[in-house]
Simulated assay, not measured.
Amino acid sequence: MATYPWLDGSLGSDCGGSIRDPAVVFGVAGFRPSHDGIQEENTLVPCPRFQRTGYLTRDMKTLYDLTRHAVRRPFDDRESWRPKRVIAINEYASGRADVDELFTKTAEKLAKFLGTELVNVSLEDTWKRTNPVKTDKGFLAHYAKTFMTVVRKDYYDSGAKFREDYQRKFDAAPFVVQTTRYLWGGATEPLAEYQRALLEVKEHNAWFSENIVDEETIMVLPRFSLDRRDEYLPDPWKREWMVWDSNLHASIGGYPNLMMPIGQLPFDSEISQRQEVFPVTLAITGAHGTDLAMIRLVHDFLAEHGPATGVQPGKSAYPDNMAF
Results as ranks from 00 to 15, higher is better:
Thr180Asn: 05
Thr180Arg: 04
Arg181Glu: 06
Tyr182Ala: 00
Tyr182Val: 02
Leu183Arg: 14
Leu183His: 12
Trp184Gly: 03
Gly185Gln: 03
Gly185Cys: 04
Gly185Lys: 01
Ala187Arg: 07
Ala187Gly: 10
Thr188Cys: 09
Glu189Arg: 04
Pro190Ala: 03
Pro190Val: 02
Leu191Ala: 15
Leu191Gln: 12
Ala192Gln: 11
Ala192Ser: 14
Ala192Leu: 11
Glu193Arg: 13
Tyr194Thr: 05
Tyr194Cys: 06
Tyr194Leu: 09
Gln195Ala: 12
Gln195Arg: 12
Arg196Phe: 10
Ala197Cys: 09
Ala197Lys: 09
Leu198Arg: 09
Leu198His: 03
Leu198Cys: 09
Leu198Tyr: 02
Leu199Tyr: 11
Leu199Cys: 11
Glu200Thr: 07
Glu200Lys: 15
Asn205Gln: 04
Asn205His: 04
Asn205Pro: 01
Asn205Phe: 00
Ala206His: 08
Trp207Asp: 00
Trp207Thr: 00
Trp207Lys: 03
Ser209Trp: 05
Glu210Asn: 11
Asn211Phe: 08
Ile212Gln: 03
Ile212His: 00
Val213Lys: 07
Val213Ile: 13
Asp214Tyr: 02
Asp214His: 03
Asp214Phe: 01
Glu215Asn: 11
Glu215Met: 04
Glu216Trp: 02
Glu216Phe: 05
Met219Asp: 04
Met219Trp: 07
Val220Ala: 01
Val220Gln: 01
Leu221Lys: 06
Leu221Asp: 06
Pro222Thr: 06
Pro222His: 06
Pro222Ala: 06
Arg223Val: 09
Arg223Glu: 12
Phe224Thr: 09
Phe224Cys: 08
Phe224Val: 05
Phe224Gln: 08
Ser225Thr: 08
Ser225Gly: 08
Ser225Ala: 12
Leu226Asn: 13
Leu226Pro: 08
Asp227Trp: 11
Asp227Phe: 14
Asp227Glu: 14
Arg228Lys: 14
Arg228Tyr: 08
Arg228Pro: 02
Arg229Cys: 09
Asp230Leu: 02
Glu231Pro: 02
Tyr232Thr: 12
Leu233His: 01
Leu233Gln: 05
Leu233Pro: 02
Leu233Phe: 04
Pro234Cys: 08
Asp235Asn: 13
Asp235Arg: 10
Asp235Glu: 13
Asp235His: 10
Pro236Met: 07
Trp237Ser: 13
Trp237Arg: 13
Trp237Tyr: 15
Trp237Gln: 13
Trp237Phe: 15
Lys238Pro: 00
Arg239Gln: 15
Arg239Leu: 14
Arg239His: 01
Glu240Leu: 12
Glu240Ile: 14
Glu240His: 14
Trp241Gly: 03
Trp241Ser: 03
Met242Cys: 14
Met242His: 15
Met242Asp: 15
Asn247Ser: 13
Asn247Gly: 13
Leu248Ser: 05
Ala250Tyr: 00
Ser251Cys: 05
Gly254Asp: 00
Gly254Lys: 01
Gly254Val: 00
Tyr255Asp: 01
Tyr255Gln: 08
Tyr255Thr: 01
Pro256Asp: 04
Leu258Ala: 04
Met259His: 12
Met260Thr: 10
Met260Glu: 07
Ile262Lys: 05
Gly263Ala: 07
Gln264Asn: 03
Phe267Tyr: 15
Asp268Gly: 02
Asp268Pro: 00
Asp268Phe: 08
Asp268Ala: 07
Ser269Arg: 03
